[in-house]
């Protein structure tokens, strides 16, 4: 009976996206980088951009992403991906350029670069992975770390008196004129993954149409450094994190300001 079933289901409806190399990744079990990577690769394929894309890798867990994508990649110093991407896009305006950054990379050391890339309306796309911690370096407090969240550098829980407040990037960048698209999504339920993919598609489309700067903030899990099982980590995203970081589209420019 089993092999008969095999002949019956011959239409493959889900497979690895062409832009994603068939290799295992270094990411921890249940880490949402993997989902974000697949969404990114699927969107590159959707717009048939693989051969015209230059990716800019951050410093953080995703620094090794260039080993996973069949796309030209340059590695940026910590926090400087938006600046490197600016250099690439200005040199090659007809190429598709994106950065992929974690919250330590973008929201801490790279805040100046991301704000100014957005404010210049740099025609590039940023995928921003917010997992409220520095993953690669072992779970330190990040600007997005929640109040009360224990990390390796906030062992008593983040206290605003000492460490200030978690920073909401998607809303902040939405206030800048240069920003064409800014949204926050999550990937902790199948429905969220679908919406996340739609948002990434919209962001890509903005760049393709030359509408200016686009960013998608993706609430993600870091099971290892949160000290949680992957499924429980997703509950944290759905609960506490989504409360403080509301999902939604914070800016969506209708038509370009310039030709």
């Amino acid at each position: 009976m089993k092999n008969k079933a095999k002949e019956k289901f011959t239409k493959q409806v889900f497979s690895r996206p062409r832009s994603l190399l068939d290799v295992s990744t270094h990411y921890c079990p249940g880490c949402h980088h993997g989902i974000a990577h697949r969404i990114l690769a699927e969107t590159i394929d959707h717009f048939d951009l693989r051969e015209k894309t230059i990716g800019v890798a951050p410093v953080g867990c995703a620094v090794l992403m260039y080993d996973y994508f069949d796309v030209d990649f340059v590695e940026a110093p910590h926090g400087r991906a938006p600046a490197v991407a600016t250099g690439v896009k200005r040199a090659q305006p007809d190429r598709f350029v994106f950065t992929y950054q974690g919250d330590g990379d973008l929201a801490a050391i790279g805040t100046s670069e991301i704000i100014h890339a957005a404010n210049r309306g740099e025609n590039l796309t940023v995928l921003f992975i917010n997992n409220t911690t520095y993953g690669m370096t072992g779970g330190q407090m990040a600007p997005t770390t929640m109040l009360g969240q224990k990390t390796s550098t906030s062992p008593y829980g983040r206290d605003f008196r000492n460490d200030g407040y978690p920073i909401r990037i998607a809303e902040m960048l939405a206030t800048l004129e240069g920003t064409a698209f800014s949204a926050r999504v999550a990937t902790s339920t199948p429905a969220q993954i679908r919406k996340a993919k739609e948002a990434v598609k919209k962001a890509f489309d903005m760049q393709i149409r030359g509408m200016g700067f686009s960013i998608v903030e993706i609430l993600s899990t870091c099971p290892t450094n949160w000290g949680m099982k992957p499924l429980d980590a997703q509950k944290r995203v759905l609960g506490e994190m989504s409360g403080y970081y509301p999902l939604g589209v914070y800016k969506e420019r209708k038509q370009a300001d310039f030709a």
Partner: peptide, 26 residues
């Protein structure tokens, strides 16, 4: 040509890195 004033010299050198990686003199 392209002239761009950066937000800092930290950003400047990284614009340079990106344009150089694109194979252009910068």
């Amino acid at each position: 040509g392209t002239f761009l004033q950066a937000e800092s010299e930290v950003a400047t050198i990284n614009y340079l890195l990106g344009t150089s990686a694109s194979g252009k003199r910068v």
